[in-house]
């Protein structure tokens, strides 16, 4: 097991290296002069020269990459021009919000998704199944931003039930925080429930057709025992992959909900950084999101190996 984890970490480091090169190169493709892009056109030649050297634009690409990555590893991404702050400080403010919402949504969507998926598979072909699958299929297709706008319209504008925007931590003001998180959380969670439900259902159906389920039936086991002991453990293994993808995707995909409900998270930050062409901030955000996705990936693989006795590590 130890060897397996080490090997996965090694592979991930290679992947992250490629990602970092890619992120770095991306910026050098930006149209226009990076100094003007950063500070605007109206600067003196003197300021220009100072920044030119500061950014290391006189050195070859590979040296610039090395100096950037060596700083990045220590958490130093430089100054954010649009925020007038250290990039790290900006991130420290924003990232926890996104992670908080993502994890909440993640832990709500998993049990519900699996539950609905199993109910749907067991009742295959009956009315309940049709209702659940139709619902899941529709929810998978609803874009998050549309869902957010729809909820905003229904619950805030029409019904005046929930505040339309903002974010406070629960320890600052519990009631306000709860009311403010309901809608964003709902928007983040519905898609997850739907996709986990679909995956669970199809992998459950696949398992139910297997020979070993027939064996279990030939032993005269009760239906519930067959489903929850013999089928579920097998069926959930592919769902683990999906869960990993969801978690990685949640953190990188929160910008829609955040921007509709005006939540100061990483999603809105990235959008802002892109609109302001704030290079260090873009680099830091994308790299951070990739790192999170990779870590989640490793965890997924380890869980996978631990759960499935067929995988020898």
């Amino acid at each position: 097991m130890g060897r397996f984890i080490l090997k996965r970490i090694g592979q991930t480091l290679i992947v992250l290296f490629i990602v970092s090169v890619f992120i770095f190169l991306l910026v050098s493709f930006l149209p226009g002069d990076p100094v003007y892009a950063m500070l605007g056109g109206e600067i003196t030649q003197e300021t220009y020269d100072r920044w030119y050297l500061e950014l290391g634009l006189d050195k070859p690409l590979i040296l610039r990459y090395l100096s950037w990555i060596s700083k990045a590893v220590t958490g130093d991404f430089g100054m954010s021009a649009s925020q007038h702050k250290e990039v790290v400080a900006v991130l420290a403010e924003r990232v926890p919000v996104t992670i908080y919402l993502s994890l909440l949504s993640f832990f709500i969507s998993i049990p519900l998704g699996i539950l609905f998926g199993i109910i749907s598979a067991v009742n295959r072909g009956k009315l309940l199944d049709s209702v659940l699958t139709t619902f899941a299929n529709v929810c998978c297709c609803l874009p998050q931003f549309f869902l957010s706008v729809l909820f905003l319209y229904l619950f805030s504008i029409k019904l005046h039930l929930l505040p339309s925007f903002g974010f406070v931590w629960p320890w600052e003001d519990l009631q306000k925080s709860l009311l403010q998180t309901i809608m964003p959380l709902l928007c983040l969670t519905i898609g997850g429930i739907a996709s986990i439900c679909r995956q669970t259902r199809s992998s459950m159906l696949e398992v139910i057709g297997q020979d070993y389920i027939r064996t279990a039936k030939s032993k005269g086991l009760a239906q519930n025992r067959i489903i929850f002991v013999h089928a579920m453990k097998n069926a959930l293994i592919p769902v683990i992959t999906l869960m990993g993808l969801r978690l990685g995707g949640l953190i990188g995909g929160s910008m829609f909900v955040e921007s509709v409900f005006n939540i100061p998270g990483m999603g809105t930050l990235l959008v802002m950084a892109i609109q302001a062409q704030d290079i260090p901030l873009i680099q830091a955000c994308v790299l951070l999101i990739a790192v999170v996705a990779c870590v989640v990936n490793i965890i997924t693989d380890i869980v996978y190996a631990a759960v499935d006795p067929r995988i020898k590590v």
């Binding site: 020979d211 070993y212 064996t215 039936k217 005269g220 009760a222 013999h230 453990k233």
Partner: peptide, 24 residues
């Protein structure tokens, strides 16, 4: 029926590789 299956009539199937549950 469940007490008959497995209890009074046991059955062995063709595919040894897939007839046993791999995670138990």
């Amino acid at each position: 029926m469940r007490s008959v299956r497995g209890g009074r009539i046991g059955m062995i199937f063709q595919e040894p590789m897939t007839s046993l549950n791999p995670v138990l």
